[in-house]
Simulated scan of single mutants.
Amino acid sequence: MTDEVPDEGPGGSEPETSDSLKAFGEVVKAFRKRAGLTQEAFAPLVGYSVPTVASIEQGRRLPSSDFVDRAEDVLDAFGVIRAAAKHLARKPGLAKWFRQWARLESQAATLYTYENRLVPGLLQTPAYARTLFGERIPTLDDDEIEALLAARVERKKLLTDRPHTIYSFIVEEHVLRRQTGGRDVMREQTTHILDTCARRNIELQIMPQSRGYHVGLNGPIQLLETSENRWYAYCEGQENGLLIPDPKVVSILQKRYARMRAQALSFEESVSLLREMRGAP
């Protein structure tokens, strides 16, 4: 196993133009049929689920670089699939510094998130996200906001598309009490979090305001485990993000996250507090 951080390539998680995605999907489909394989037979050969293969072939999902390489090899495609992937046309949607992490995130077996500034992106409603994008400085035009919103909505599908991935969120209480977008937006946001956390693989804990100190005060933390059991960390600032592959640093952040889980409210207590914040349905 290599210690190198996966580089960006055709598998960056940035949204693609629909035409280029559809064209790539048709290429994969043509070579799959040439090989006499159904989607059900092809999926395990490349290590992806049937729904994922179907989404890629239909032009609805961006292929990872890993998928591209495996499909090329399994289908003996004369380099055509790799060549087609190089011509996937990108459009704005994810910050450049976030793409590498997003690609890892889309294939994670475990994902931990601590946030003290805003509701984590994977849990945001479109209305909440639109408020954030609409208030950015420098200001964004309508097309830029729509591109960002589309990328956010697409990314959120991870929570439903990957039911075997373990998701843990720790969010500061003040983030959930701040009326971002107004009372109605936050009520919808709170309801969405409660609905999302009803899934067996998703857990949210609230760090209470009454907790005077905890070990995460240095800033937000994200940790993930790949299917190969390799761990990475990610920390993001105002206009940059840092992907951390160093096992020693990742281990320190894992220890901090573990301590925060003990310092935060339990899952049951957090759900109870969220219901209290939301009020009567």
Rank of each mutant, 00 (worst) to 15 (best):
G237F: 07
E115H: 11
G93F: 03
L118W: 09
A102T: 04
H87Q: 14
L265P: 13
R199W: 13
I137T: 11
I56V: 12
A198I: 12
Q58G: 15
D76T: 15
T2M: 06
K156V: 05
T17K: 08
I170P: 03
E72G: 09
P6Q: 04
M260F: 05
T196M: 03
P92H: 04
E72I: 03
A84T: 12
L158W: 02
D142F: 07
F31V: 05
E276C: 08
A95Y: 13
G25C: 00
D195H: 13
G219Q: 08
A151Q: 00
D7K: 14
S168V: 12
Y114H: 01
A23E: 13
K33F: 00
R117D: 08
W101F: 04
G219D: 07
L273I: 04
R61D: 09
E173R: 11
V215F: 02
T160R: 10
L242W: 09
I166A: 13
K156S: 15
Q238K: 10
L253R: 03
E173Q: 10
R117G: 02
R32V: 01
M207H: 04
T139R: 12
T125M: 00
R275W: 04
D184F: 14
L122A: 06
S20Y: 13
Y257L: 11
V27D: 04
L224Q: 14
S18I: 14
M1S: 14
Y232N: 04
L62K: 15
P92I: 04
D246L: 03
V5K: 06
T125C: 02
L75H: 02
H164G: 09
T160I: 09
E16V: 13
R200S: 03
R261I: 11
Q222C: 12
A147G: 02
R90F: 06
P245G: 01
E228D: 15
K33N: 00
I137K: 10
R259S: 15
L140W: 06
V28N: 02
S65L: 14
P63H: 08
S210C: 12
M260A: 02
V50S: 07
H164A: 11
P92K: 04
T110K: 09
V46H: 08
L122T: 04
Q254K: 15
G182E: 13
P10Y: 05
I252D: 15
G25D: 06
L75Q: 09
L88P: 10
E40S: 15
K255R: 15
D76W: 03
L111G: 08
V50Y: 02
G93R: 07
E236C: 06
P6H: 00
G9Y: 11
K22N: 09
T131G: 00
L223N: 02
L194A: 06
R259G: 03
R117L: 14
G59Q: 07
G121V: 07
G93T: 08
E239C: 15
A23F: 09
A77Y: 09
D76H: 13
A147R: 11
A85H: 01
T190D: 02
